[in-house]
Amino acid sequence: MNLTKQEIQFIDNYLIKNEVKFWDVRIELLDHIVSAVEDKMTNDGISFNEALLDVHRSFGNQFIEFGVSKDKIFEKGLYQSNAGFKKFIRNKQKEIGRKHRKAYWKTFVPFITSIRFFVELLLLAIVTFVAYQYSIKAGLFAIMSGIFISEFTKLFYGGLKKFKSKSLNIQSAVASSLLLTQLPYWLIMLFNWNFENAEVKPYYILFCLFALLFVFSRHSVNNFIKIYNTYNERYKLLIS
């Protein structure tokens, strides 16, 4: 027995009401729940409501029937607890983080040894050197702009459209950007605090740290683009 479009929509809305807000998490849950409900209705001969409540419980969402009148069991049962779904999302978020980190380090060495990266680094070094001739601040600003361009690219694309901000994979991929955009300021503060009384401040330390930060930041853009393209394709398929 196949569920109707309305019944599938009802399940999708029920998931949203149960705080499964990420579409890339919901697609897997929706498919599983629809398949299980169809199976139960066909093989166990139970109603849509009974089957959905059964599947809801099977995900670890507890429901205490005590004190609930029979005609309210379905309605109350579906929304009394979403603990199972919350655990599902937490676990998925953890594994997505692991997957992204693994992909990041797997491609790190090939990227930093590529000609493209070498050219980009050389350009940044030239711009920084030219700016440094005017003032140290201009030099620092130039090298920091390399980091900011990388991070703002991710933040811009990651939050550009609603579907991207509602994707757990994309949200996970841009999570580190907020930290990386703050890090240069913290490093400057730490540097000033540490060398407050120094006659000649060793600015080369800051330049080296920023250059290192740029390497990690620039590579994260590559990984982000891959994730972005994958989920962009999936979203197009979802709304097609």
């Binding site: 196949n2 479009k5 599938i8 697609i27 929706l30 498919d31 999936r234 398929l237 979802l238 097609s240």
Partner: peptide, 10 residues
Amino acid sequence: VAKVDNRLRK
């Protein structure tokens, strides 16, 4: 991921 019966299947 493929589209099956009006929904995505992983």
